[in-house]
Design a protein around this nucleic acid. Sequence first.
DNA 1: TCCATAAGTGGACATTGTGTCCGGATACTT
DNA 2: AAGTATCCGGACACAATGTCCACTTATGGA
Lengths: 192, 192
Amino acid sequence: MTRQSVEHPHHERADAARNRRLILEAADRLYAERGAAHVTMDDIARAAGVGRGTLYRRYPDRASIALALLDAHERDLQETLLRGEPPLGPGASPAERLAAFYAAMVALLDRHVHLALGAEVGRSRFEAGAYGFWRAHVRALVAEAGHADPDAMVEPLLAPLAPDVFARQREIGIGADRIAAALERLARAALG
Amino acid sequence: MTRQSVEHPHHERADAARNRRLILEAADRLYAERGAAHVTMDDIARAAGVGRGTLYRRYPDRASIALALLDAHERDLQETLLRGEPPLGPGASPAERLAAFYAAMVALLDRHVHLALGAEVGRSRFEAGAYGFWRAHVRALVAEAGHADPDAMVEPLLAPLAPDVFARQREIGIGADRIAAALERLARAALG
DNA sequence: TCCATAAGTGGACATTGTGTCCGGATACTT
DNA sequence: AAGTATCCGGACACAATGTCCACTTATGGA
């Protein structure tokens, strides 16, 4: 779905590849340093040592840069959900799988909040990145658990994983472990 | 908490009061017509027939205008939660009160999504508007239900009410009634 | 090795939205 | 009616976005 922003074109020129790396490294560092909201495209271009035109050629906005950085991490988890061991992968009960999914996502967010927040700038998270995948996964679990209206239950169950919610909780002193524990309880209550 | 943006100063000049009304009416209309994201301060000033300076004098940004408009509606619900009849008001079980709260919030969102989205521009919803009130209410319910870590459970339970989540659900064809039904089930599962 | 050319680069530019400022206008008081 | 505190509104400076195009460079064939 966002592969083109990660996979290398078949014959990418050497200078282009170098600049791509410079851009991604600079963006990652800036997002981590200042927070997504305080990084402009100009900042990234300057930090990477490339011109604005070069930056815009690849990435139309900040969100797509953050998405490119997130993508690799997210793909690992997606792979595990599809073919990994239970309880993340197939084989466990829906409630346990949702609990494990929550825990894994919290761990992911804990490492990459700055990127997740950066990916939210502009376009809403719903139509970008891996949201479609998470949605399909959770929908399947909800349906398997026998809920009456799975489609109406998916977004409410995904909402607690919104990056800004996670960031807020950490801001007021609730660590990733407590968040994960609370969500695991919620998962078992909702699908158990 | 946001009273100063709604209450009239003791001796507001007649022209100032008129302009306040013009501004709020114009903003409400524009938000509804085009959606919050596509309304600028300039648009509001022009539609209201006042200058930019006049607009900025009262409202530092779009969010505070939307908040002023939302405020009245939210206050009604707050009053009911504190002193109204069960199940919204005191007297019912935590699970039933949370279910009723969800339903009431969905109804509120259904009428005023455009405002709720407008209030989110810039400042995150957490530190503005009535969020503190909703948080305190839900936290009390969670605690009363005997949960281990109420503080970690509050944000996850409030997250499904985020305006962008609601807007998204409606966008993909899930009506307010289905959302309310799903959330009521969630409430009973989480606190029951 | 050298050249043709497709791809890539970078900074100038136009555009849009934000927020501030202050001379002038206007309502309220006495 | 006059004085004054408040308010008005547009001009201005600034910040960030996204586009454009003249120039540069890598690459592959002769």
